[in-house]
Each structure stands twice: as C-alpha cells, then as structure tokens.
Simulated scan of single mutants.
Amino acid sequence: MPVISDPARFNEEELYVDLRTTIGLPVYLKCEGFNFAGSIKLKAATEMVDAAEREGLLRPGSILIESSSGNLGVALSMIAAHRGHRFLCVTDARCNQPTIRLMEALGSQVHVVREPDPRSGLLGARLKYVRALCASDDRYVWLDQHSNQGNWRAHYRTTAPAIAHHFPRLDVLFVGAGTTGTLMGCARWFWQWRRRVRIVAVDSVGSVSFGGAPGRRLIPGLGTSVPPPLLDPSYVDDVVRVEEKDAVQVCRRLAARGFLFGGSTGTVISGASQWLERHGRRGLTAVAIAPDLGERYLDTVYREGWPPDAVRAEPVPELVHLGR
C-alpha cells in the first residue's frame, strides 16, 4: 500500500490497456495519467524542479515560470504548491479552461497569450513573453522544458526501462512528439541498451517538428510551431502525422467502450493504427504511450461538433521515413 507525503512521488507505472479487445488494434497502451497531476508531464516536471533546487537556481523569493500548453503547467503547479514555490504558467488560447482553473486552484498564476507571433505562432509568442519577463526581473527562474535536458532524462530513467521490463520482446514503440522529451528519452534508452525496437514518432498535421508547413492545431500537447531543440531525428525510425479529426474519432471510439483519454492519446493511437495498417499487424509486439486522460477535454474533444470544421472521413496516413 503506497503511503506518501509528497504528491509528486506517486505515479502508476504498470498499467496498460490491451487495445485489441477495445478497438481491435494490436497495441498495448501504457497509461501515464494516473498520478496527482493527471499526465506524463509529472515525470519531466519533477526531474527539472529537482535539478533546479539541487543546483541552487530556485532560492527563497524565486518565481518559477514556464511556457506550457497545459499538462506540464498542472504538474509544476502541484509541485510548486507542495514545495512552497511561486509559479507563473504562460499558456495560450488553446489551453482548456478546466486546466487553467486547475492550475489556479493549486495557487499558480496563469497568463494566456492570445495573439500569435507572425513567424512562430502561439508558441513563439509564449516564449517571447517568458524571455521578456526573465530579462526584466531576476527573480524568475525559467526551466525551459523545450531545451531542458531533464525533460528527456526523466523518461530515460523511468518510462523506457519500465516498458522494456514488461515487454522484453518489444518490436515497435509509438510516442507522441511535443517537446520530444518523452520521445528522446525512450529512443535514447532503447538505442543505448541495443534493443532492436523501432521508434515511431506521432506528430500532428500542422506541426513543424519534422519539417513541413505550419498549420492550425486546436488540440494542445502534441505538435509545435517551433522546431524542438531536444529533437535528434537520428534516433527516430518513422514519423506519422495525424489529422486532428482522426484523433477526435479515436478518442470517441474509446469513450464508447468506457475509456476516456485525452486528445494527445487519441493522436498517438491514430498514428499507431495508420502505421500498423501500412506495415502489417501480425507478429508484432507494439506499445503506445498515452500521455493523459480525458476529463480536461470534455468541452473540446468530447463536445459534439468539435472541431467545428471536422468532416467524417477515413484517415489517410502520411509517413516520413527517417533513417537511424
């Protein structure tokens, strides 16, 4: 029986959903949303805050500041509340209202950026705001999840070895690409330990992470309008780009079977389905990482008619091959 005094020290690491029995997909879904922050971002947040405290960057009077589309902001809000730090989350208009209210309930301040940067979109505008505040006041401590090495090291230490422990004959791993912390941590671990595992990154259509033209994206979490500094494409075997309408359809199919997952998880599962349709399903042991749960998406992903221009159509896979 776990007994804790720090909410960051609990995380369910061993829960998987067999998608064969729910939507007929031969994939084991690693569920990362069962902790007090509600998402996989708790791992990176804990790693980065621990390092900042250890290195003396966080001192009495410091103010944590971070750009986040939502889930990392919640994780940092929880950690800051427990450890007595002040925290300002800089997000944008795509962040779900329940997520904003949750951060505020934990005592954090939230600044919502509504005007995108002409060249780098909403993410670029968020980062510009953070840099300006840090330059104006040395009390601000920016963890910078987009370039902080603790982001990927958290998953190198925890997520990847946990998967390998339960699936020693793993063939393919599907990982969503946002900051690419989870992707890089897992890819590096399997590469270093000589595991013959195919790493498939799942990105959103409209993201520039792996090249291509930027486009509108409404589901927060995956994809980016600025190339992620942590990304090293040499560790990635394939990339699948997913339309948001397809991610929404997957979420609703799972909800119809009693599993309520977030938009990022729907994107990853849709990408896994497309990749397996192209490469064949038989004889492969496949795992996909589910970053979050669905309660924070009730007003978006699970609201009828959202996104407003969605059309019902069969998903068309778009793959980019990257040699290791």
Rank of each mutant, 00 (worst) to 15 (best):
E12D: 13
E13D: 07
L15Q: 06
L19Q: 00
R20F: 06
T22E: 12
T22S: 11
T22K: 05
I23L: 10
I23E: 08
I23M: 08
P26Y: 04
V27T: 09
K30V: 10
C31D: 10
F34N: 07
N35H: 09
F36M: 11
A37T: 08
G38A: 08
K41P: 01
A44F: 00
M48A: 09
D50E: 15
D50K: 06
D50W: 08
A51L: 11
A52E: 11
A52Q: 09
E53R: 12
E53D: 14
R59A: 02
P60R: 11
P60C: 03
P60S: 08
G61T: 11
L64K: 02
S67E: 06
S68W: 00
S69K: 11
V74W: 04
V74I: 15
L76H: 02
S77E: 05
M78W: 00
A80C: 07
G84R: 10
F87R: 02
A93K: 10
R94H: 13
Q97L: 13
R101K: 02
L102P: 00
M103V: 06
S108K: 00
S108Q: 01
S108N: 04
S108E: 10
S108P: 07
V110G: 05
H111N: 09
V112S: 05
R114N: 14
L123Y: 02
A125Y: 09
K128W: 04
Y129T: 14
A135W: 12
A135H: 13
D138K: 15
W142E: 02
Q145R: 07
Q149M: 08
G150N: 03
N151Q: 13
N151D: 12
R153T: 15
R153N: 15
R153G: 06
R153W: 13
Y156V: 06
Y156A: 13
R157E: 13
T158E: 09
T159D: 04
T159C: 10
A160H: 02
H165P: 12
H165I: 00
H166K: 14
D171N: 15
V172P: 01
F174Y: 14
F174H: 15
F174I: 14
T179M: 09
T182K: 05
L183S: 13
C186L: 12
F190E: 01
R195C: 11
R198A: 14
S204D: 00
S204V: 13
V205T: 08
G206F: 03
V208R: 08
G211Q: 10
P214S: 12
P214C: 12
I219K: 04
G221V: 10
S225W: 05
P228I: 05
L231T: 01
L231F: 11
P233R: 10
V236F: 10
D238V: 13
V239Y: 02
R241F: 03
K245H: 13
Q249K: 14
V250S: 00
C251T: 09
A255P: 00
G263S: 12
G266M: 02
I269P: 00
S270I: 04
G280R: 07
G283T: 01
L284C: 06
T285S: 09
I289P: 00
D292P: 01
L293A: 07
E295S: 06
V301G: 03
D309T: 15
D309L: 15
R312N: 14
P315T: 05
V316E: 13
H321K: 12
